[in-house]
Amino acid sequence: VTLFVALYDYEARTEDDLSFHKGSKFQILNSSEGDWWEARSLTTGETGYIPSNYVAPV
């Protein structure tokens, strides 16, 4: 499992996005959609889309 960590805070703009804070960790579920990845937050357990340029591999 590849884990990613948030580099910045992000406020969701749609109900499909995940809001998160810098330092939040994610499991990436689908990275084939270009700049928006489907991810599960390891902090909240919620699933949604995150901007790929806001995260980096742990």
Rank of each mutant, 00 (worst) to 15 (best):
Val1Cys: 15
Tyr54Val: 05
Tyr10Cys: 05
Val5Gln: 07
Arg13Trp: 08
Glu46Arg: 10
Trp36Tyr: 12
Ala39Gly: 05
Glu38Asp: 05
Ser24Pro: 01
Glu46Leu: 11
Trp36Cys: 08
Leu7Ser: 02
Ile50Tyr: 00
Ala39Met: 05
Ser24Ile: 06
Tyr8Glu: 08
Tyr10Thr: 00
Phe4Thr: 04
Arg40Phe: 13
Ile28Gly: 01
Ser31Asp: 13
Tyr54Ile: 06
Asn53Thr: 10
Arg40Thr: 11
Ala6Glu: 02
Trp36Leu: 07
Ser52Asp: 02
Tyr10Leu: 02
Ala6Met: 02
Leu3Tyr: 12
Leu18His: 02
Glu46His: 09
Val1Ile: 12
Gly45His: 06
Arg40Ile: 13
Pro57Ser: 07
Glu15Phe: 10
Asp16Leu: 14
Leu29Glu: 05
Asp16Glu: 12
His21Arg: 14
Tyr54Glu: 01
Glu33Trp: 10
Ser41Glu: 10
Ser52Val: 08
Leu7Glu: 04
Arg40Cys: 09
Leu18Met: 13
Thr2Lys: 12
Asp17His: 15
Asn30Ile: 06
Lys22Pro: 03
Gln27Leu: 14
Ser19Asp: 04
Leu42Cys: 14
Val55Glu: 01
Pro57Lys: 08
Glu38Gly: 04
Leu18Glu: 00
Tyr10Asn: 02
Gly34Pro: 15
Phe4Asn: 01
Val55Met: 09
Ser41Leu: 13
Leu18Ala: 01
Val58Cys: 13
Gly48Tyr: 03
Asn30Thr: 08
Val55His: 00
Glu38Lys: 13
Lys22Val: 10
Lys22Ala: 12
Ala56Val: 14
Glu46Met: 11
Gly34Lys: 13
Pro51Ile: 03
Lys25Ala: 08
Gly23Gln: 03
Asn53Val: 08
Tyr49Met: 14
His21Phe: 12
Gly48His: 03
Ser19Lys: 04
Asn53Ile: 09
Tyr8Gln: 08
Thr2Leu: 13
Ser41Cys: 14
Ser52His: 07
Arg40Gly: 01
Ser52Thr: 06
Phe20Met: 05
Gly45Trp: 06
Glu11Leu: 10
Asp16Lys: 15
Ala12Ser: 11
Gly34Asp: 12
Thr14Ser: 13
Glu15Thr: 12
Trp36Gln: 06
Val55Cys: 01
Pro57Cys: 06
Glu33Phe: 11
Asp17Asn: 10
Asp35Glu: 12
Ile50Thr: 00
Arg13Glu: 11
Glu38Ser: 08
Asp17Thr: 15
Gly34Phe: 09
Leu3Ala: 07
Tyr54Thr: 05
His21Glu: 12
Ser31Gln: 13
Ser41Gln: 07
Ala6Asp: 01
Ser31Lys: 13
Trp37Leu: 09
Ser31Thr: 13
Thr47Lys: 09
Ala56Arg: 10
Glu33Thr: 12
Ile28Ser: 01
Pro57Ile: 08
Gly34Gln: 12
Glu11Val: 14
Thr47Cys: 10
Tyr8Arg: 08
Val55Tyr: 01
Tyr54Cys: 10
Trp37Phe: 07
Glu33Val: 10
Leu3Ser: 06
His21Ala: 13
Leu18Lys: 01
Phe20Val: 01
Arg13Gly: 09
Leu29Phe: 07
Val1Ala: 12
Ala6Ser: 05
Glu15Trp: 09
Glu15Pro: 13
Ala12Tyr: 02
Ser32Asn: 11
Asn30Gln: 09
Ser19Leu: 01
Ala12Asp: 02
Thr44Trp: 03
Gly48Gln: 02
Trp36Pro: 04
Trp37Asp: 00
Phe20Leu: 04
Asn53Phe: 11
Tyr49Cys: 11
Leu18Pro: 01
Val5Phe: 09
Tyr10Trp: 08
Thr2Glu: 12
Thr44Ser: 09
Tyr8Lys: 07
Leu3Met: 10
Pro51Phe: 06
Glu46Thr: 07
Thr43Val: 11
Ala56Ser: 09
Thr2Ile: 13
Gln27Phe: 14
Asp9Tyr: 04
Gly23His: 04
Lys25Pro: 05
Thr44Val: 02
Tyr8Ile: 06
Tyr10Val: 01
Pro57Val: 08
Thr47His: 08
Trp37Pro: 00
Asn30Lys: 08
Pro51Trp: 06
Ala12Lys: 08
Val5Arg: 04
Val1Arg: 11
Val58Asn: 05
Val5Thr: 05
Glu46Tyr: 07
Tyr54Trp: 07
Glu46Phe: 08
Val55Arg: 00
Gln27Arg: 08
Leu42Val: 11
Ala56His: 09
Pro57Ala: 10
Ile50Arg: 00
Pro57His: 06
Leu42Asn: 04
Tyr49Arg: 14
Lys25Tyr: 15
Arg13Asn: 10
Ser52Gln: 07
Trp37Asn: 01
Pro51Cys: 10
Thr2Asn: 12
Leu7Trp: 03
Leu7Gln: 05
Gly34Met: 11
Leu42Asp: 04
Ser41Arg: 07
Ser41Pro: 01
Ile50Gly: 01
Asp17Cys: 15
Thr43Asp: 14
Thr47Arg: 10
Asn30Tyr: 07
Tyr49Leu: 14
Lys22Arg: 10
Tyr8Phe: 11
Ala12Leu: 02
Lys22Ser: 07
Thr43Glu: 15
Leu7Ile: 10
Arg40Gln: 09
Ser52Met: 09
Trp37Gln: 03
Gly34Thr: 12
Ala6Phe: 01
Trp37Glu: 00
Leu29Thr: 07
Thr47Trp: 08
Thr43Leu: 12
Trp36Arg: 14
Thr47Ser: 08
Phe4His: 07
Pro57Phe: 06
Ser41Gly: 03
Asn30Pro: 04
Ile28Trp: 02
Trp37Met: 06
Asp35Ala: 10
Gly48Cys: 04
Phe26Arg: 00
Asp9Cys: 08
Gly23Arg: 02
Ser24Asp: 15
Ile28Thr: 01
Tyr8Gly: 05
Gly34Ile: 10
Thr44Asp: 05
Glu38Pro: 06
His21Trp: 09
Phe20Ala: 01
Asp17Glu: 15
Glu15Leu: 11
Phe20Cys: 02
Pro51His: 07
Ser24Gln: 15
Thr14Tyr: 15
Trp37Ala: 02
Ala12Glu: 03
Tyr10Lys: 01
Asp16His: 15
Tyr10Gly: 00
Asn53Arg: 12
Arg13Tyr: 08
Glu15Ile: 11
Leu18Trp: 05
Tyr49Gly: 03
Pro51Thr: 02
Glu33Cys: 15
Ala56Lys: 10
Ile28Arg: 04
Tyr10Asp: 01
Tyr10Ser: 02
Leu18Gly: 00
Trp36Asp: 03
Phe26Pro: 00
Glu11Ile: 13
